[in-house]
Design a protein around this nucleic acid. Structure first.
Lengths: 196, 196, 196, 196
DNA sequence: CATGAATGAGCCTTCATTCAT
DNA sequence: GATGAATGAAGGCTCATTCAT
């Protein structure tokens, strides 16, 4: 089955690229490094990807889609909004913790930021924001979250919070369990920092 | 006055670099671009900076230090913890809004992330985290914030939230006033999202 | 046959470098000149040599080794010390005359002298000195040359004499046959300049 | 006396250049290095020399002229041809030994060889060859040296011999007294290596 | 005359991409 | 499809030379 072989090779390259980019960053990574890491010839990479940049874009799209799908699955099983949100945070951390690839890649991509991607992965990131937003909306509708909650702002706040937690954890050489911070993050987000 | 001339030229190059990096990102920017932008010859840049990378590091250190200093000043005048925190958020947004340079540079730097900086600017970023942390500590001590507040986590949550708000604003082409979102962000952080 | 192709390309580059260096000197030669001269792309050169300097070192080592080997062969067939020495001088001149490449390269190298080589080619030059020295030693042992001959000094004298003859010939645009001077040089060296 | 001041500065630069070139070679020396070594500003050098190359040419011409003059003086006091020749060799070595500057500079220059000088200093080198040649001619005329002596060849042989002795001495880190080899060199040149 | 900051042409080297096998 | 040698455009950095002070 050639389609299979193709997708296998495609996958091997993507996975190798994740490791290489994670190690040295996109700009400091050589196509030859990815070739060596994936065990294929340099030329072969160009049979599957038009340019080096396309590797990064593909990689991010695929990994990000997996990530969002993975989170989506978990959430559908939990009806309570607050619990759902706690699961979201915990799952976000768990997935990144169990898939250092994903963590790194999301660092790489989101860190490169707007500069040369600007939207290359807008859809995938957007769908994650939508996912978070829908959890918040449900909570507002159910009366669990406050009526006047500015959904968009809150979505960004939560995403930024989780993202920063991950960044700090990655930069800190992963000396602790990221998932152990999930409840604290969710607490702050749900109840705020003020004395009640 | 050579000292003045020197620092003037140094500043011109840094400022030009900020604009150039903001436009195209560090890796896609050419030293020649910075030269043209700053109105000096390529060689002149190397009279003030050893390498291209040193420009980025200097730039970030200086701008970040300014940023933290600017925030510190404002906060010292406000005794109430909650009001202090609101001012912090508002000021963070205001400064970045009024100094697109700063916003861009912080994007550039924090976006490049760990890859090749990893600590080059640790001190400066750290001092901002310290600033945020001290505001939270004061609030806990004064009884305004909850006793069991996990300061470190909350610090990262707030920083991440503000950072993401800024990123979204920059990516969104600055179609709205960033500072107008300050209260909403502070509200979420102070009171949480749950119905009270 | 990649081994062959490789060594062919390596050789082509070396030979082109000899011509280019001979023409303009090492420092005034551009890697791009060597590329053009050898008919390969600039990048190709760097597949075979790490740096420009490595080209020069390789080149000299190889050519000098050939040179010494070529001389050694001839001498082994002549038992008489004086005749052997005459052959040495004649052969030295012949080889350089027939291989302007060699002559130029030895000029280039020995002329750059100590400055940045200082030993890069010590072995090869040393083996030539050894060859000359062994001819002199044999002559002393056989009684053809005087017992108190200071071998090391005499070796340098002969080498210097031949080298200067070649230099003058090269500088003089090769307007005469270098080999025609071989006997005169050998005469001076064997019998001295004094009236006997 | 401006003329004096001028020539003083000129001299300081030349002398500094000798040291710098001796240390790192012409191509690896920076004009800024010479400025620092001579204690003048870079721009000042260009008040006395049009280009970097002119420094080298001037330097060589002057030093070589001094050298030849110094040798000439000594020889005029010795009537006997053989003794004159011995003095020439000894003096050649002495001067270079006592003026490492001279030794180095002659290495530098003669080693760069033809490449980009090709005659810039032809006159000075030529006058040394003439000096040697005249000693030989006198000897032939006086009957001390053999009638059929090929003067030009013998001149080059002697010059090459002395030059190589110096090169070896310089390369060998000057671990022995160069002048101590003068008699051996003269012996070989005068009487040859053969058993008499 | 003296200075040294400024200039910018030039070059070695890298590396994404191609293509003959 | 797969390979990896070959390509050559591009860019960071140097340094001889200039010129305003």
């Amino acid at each position: 089955m050639p389609g299979d072989a193709d997708s296998k090779k495609h996958q091997r390259i993507i996975d190798a690229a994740v490791r290489v980019f994670a190690r040295k960053g996109y700009y400091s990574s050589r196509v030859a490094d990815i070739a060596k890491e994936s065990g294929v010839a340099v030329g072969t990479i160009y049979l599957y990807f038009k340019t080096k940049e396309e590797i990064l874009v593909s990689l991010f799209r695929e990994k990000m889609a997996d990530f969002v799908a993975s989170l989506g699955n978990v959430l559908s099983q939990e009806p309570d909004p607050s619990a759902k949100l706690r699961r979201l945070v915990r799952r976000h951390f768990e997935v990144l913790e169990l898939n250092p690839e994903l963590a790194e890649v999301i660092q790489v991509e989101l860190r490169q930021g707007n500069k040369f991607f600007r939207g290359a992965s807008a859809r995938e990131v957007g769908s994650y924001f939508d996912l978070i937003g829908s959890v918040l909306s449900e909570g507002v509708e159910s009366g669990d979250f406050r009526k006047d909650l500015p959904i968009k702002v809150a979505t960004k706040v939560l995403f930024g919070a989780m993202d920063q937690m991950t960044t700090s954890w990655v930069l800190g050489q992963r000396t602790y369990k990221l998932r152990d911070t999930a409840d604290a993050v969710a607490d702050v987000f749900l109840a705020g920092i003020s004395r009640s």
